[in-house]
Design a protein around this nucleic acid. Structure first.
Lengths: 151, 151
DNA sequence: ACTATATGAGATAAAAAGGTCTTAATATAT
DNA sequence: ATATATTAAGACCTTTTTATCTCATATAGT
């Protein structure tokens, strides 16, 4: 029931692409890595995998970089998580029990279940572009940098 | 917002102690490790730390083992988590953002907040003995073993 | 064609988490 | 006192995760 750092980086940077890139304006790993403050060689690896998984797109060479096609924009955050972590982890019992379900629940099973449903609403039932637009509309910055107040 | 395996083991085995041990009936690592199916040398290490943290108690020698005093029983699951993982991890932003709070929320901040509050009700506002009694009353087995139906 | 600039791929390294082993210390029972 | 059972402590090993490095490949612009 938790994301690896890899998944978090992948989510943030894909949402970054959704907001800032398109087929005519591709963005390099380096720029994204600096913008959201993640280690760039690590992000490069993640992007390779996301491209293979058809979550994002890329072109090589000058003015190349990463971006989302219309089709990519329809993918969900859960697709990203599935691509990077797999879905097992996010569905595991919070206390690690092998057998934990409605008829055999751990002490926090129903609490976790409710949470998971809400998360899935955002991460499965909404596509990346929709989520990105929501974030932009709310004026949020998704970065791992410290956001220092301007002086 | 997630527990390490170490924390999970510690929680399960402390709840095991709450249910099965007391000052007159101490239980050895080996027995507990087998009962809930966790690696026993690893659990031994965790128990050392829990003893230092005054979450559980121990005595050496024949008929020795681990158990909970009245004082230990008043500790909470959150005390266990704090002792093993520290509290930072459980309070981190679900997406890993450095700055994520009510006035600067990540896309799932309020969902996570609600979840955290519910978890805290069980893990901070209830002591170990109370939680254990609740679990016993509900007839739950907290083990990592597969619970195979009896033939 | 050549050069510069990107990504792609695979090997490698470093750090963290998970797990084991060995020896010492201590308490109990005989 | 001695043997035995148990935890305590610390070193050690393994696996997974995170991160880096190097070289190959593709593309654009000149």
């Amino acid at each position: 029931m938790m994301l690896s750092r890899a998944s978090k980086y992948a989510i943030l940077s894909t949402l970054y692409l959704a907001e800032h890139a398109n087929e005519n304006r591709k963005i390099s790993v380096k720029v994204i890595a600096e913008s959201i403050d993640v280690p760039s060689p690590f992000l490069a690896k993640l992007f390779q995998q996301l491209v293979k998984g058809k979550i994002i797109s890329s072109t090589k060479g000058p003015n190349g970089g990463f971006y989302l096609t219309k089709k990519n924009q329809k993918k969900s955050v859960l697709d990203i998580i599935e691509n990077i972590d797999g879905l097992i982890k996010i569905n595991e019992c919070f206390l690690g029990l092998n057998e934990c379900d409605g008829s055999n629940p751990c002490p926090v099973h129903f609490i976790v279940e409710r949470f998971k449903n809400s998360i899935f609403e955002k991460f499965r039932d909404k596509n990346i572009m929709e989520l990105s637009e929501e974030i932009v509309a709310n004026g949020r910055k998704l970065t791992l940098k410290d956001i220092s107040p301007e002086v």
